[in-house]
Design a binder for these strands. Sequence first.
DNA 1: TGACTTCAGTCAGCTTCCCTGACTACTTTG
DNA 2: CAAAGTAGTCAGGGAAGCTGACTGAAGTCA
Lengths: 146, 146
Amino acid sequence: MEAESGLSTGVLMFIPYRALEDRVFAALAAAGFDDFTPAQARVMQRIGPQGTRLTELAAQAQITKQTAGFLVDQLEKAGYVRRVPDPTDKRARLVCGAEKAWAAKRVADAVVAEVEREWEAHLGKRRMKQLREALTLLREITDPWA
Amino acid sequence: MEAESGLSTGVLMFIPYRALEDRVFAALAAAGFDDFTPAQARVMQRIGPQGTRLTELAAQAQITKQTAGFLVDQLEKAGYVRRVPDPTDKRARLVCGAEKAWAAKRVADAVVAEVEREWEAHLGKRRMKQLREALTLLREITDPWA
DNA sequence: TGACTTCAGTCAGCTTCCCTGACTACTTTG
DNA sequence: CAAAGTAGTCAGGGAAGCTGACTGAAGTCA
């Protein structure tokens, strides 16, 4: 494509993101959490401490409620979540994380922290801070929700 | 947990990337290039000026050669690429971009440039430069190939 | 030269993810 | 209470990816 460092800023962002994601999934698999998929993880990530409604999960993950329902079914079978009736609305049920989900989250969080330390070691404290600052600012005009 | 936002640096990178991708696809669709998918685009992007082998495309896009073959089939039907025999190796064929592909690329490149200008306007010239610098450095330890 | 090995690409069959459309059950509101 | 809105499911389908098994061509080496 282009000659020099001619990659677009967008692509330059995607490369480290993808590398991080790969690391997290590898670590989860190594720790025995190999029975869920990236799509399921994306939903699971968004479950709040008190549980979250299916419709809410779907909206946040930007998928249809049908897809979310399918993914939650699989997560339920694998023992990561359970569905409990919502006491405040008899139409709804709350998707709650099970202990297995929190255990996986602890592993994932540890890897993210480790990778960020590696990045900081490579960039130096100053540049890492600038990077986060620029990205946080950029979020203001690129984050469609929040 | 940082003060500015609790999001990991990886997620912070993904947000603008996704926003850029959405913009590019919307612009392509608006320009009439609505007959290909993101997956097909990811393959098409990697076709060199003189054409590229299927196996090479698969490796670069990090998919199997079967999947790549399937996507190239679709691109061929839609008129974006054609396959020609490789003169230097009778086993292989070169996937070459057709004029329609280059036209789409021109549209995409224009949108990328436009979005980058918007980002620079929001961040300021200095911060944009720092951002690209940090990301380029980060590529050294996160880009699995090159 | 002939026997292995390697590489390019295809075929067949499968899973996962995600969609639309149509539906039931319950809540809220006028 | 009737109408409108919301939570979730069911049915069906398409896109994208995988593995495994294969053909045909090239390269290697005794």
